[in-house]
């Protein structure tokens, strides 16, 4: 499976939880919002942890083929 990683910049409060937790997966864009380093990725615990830890649930993980949300439970 391939995941599609999107950050809702309307929700993002620039907490940097994701950038601090998964620095190779997320970075700040020029406006100070989080942005995925790569939009498509193999399933990855760091990315999932970042999504779980986001205080405003701004990180959306979906199955790139079906578009279905990826479950965030371990």
């Amino acid at each position: 499976m391939t995941w599609r990683v999107t950050v809702d910049t309307g929700l993002c409060i620039s907490s940097g939880m994701c950038v601090g937790t998964a620095p190779t997966r997320f970075r700040f864009d020029e406006s100070g919002h989080s942005s995925p380093v790569r939009e498509l990725t193999e399933p990855d615990d760091q990315v999932r942890d970042a999504a779980v830890s986001c205080p405003v649930e701004a990180i959306l993980l979906t199955d790139a083929e079906t578009g279905h949300p990826v479950t965030l439970d371990d």
Binding site: I13, S15, G16, M17, G20, T21, P55
Partner: peptide
Amino acid sequence: GVGAHHCLGAQ
């Protein structure tokens, strides 16, 4: 703060 230690209770 910012990053992994961003205040858990911020909201």
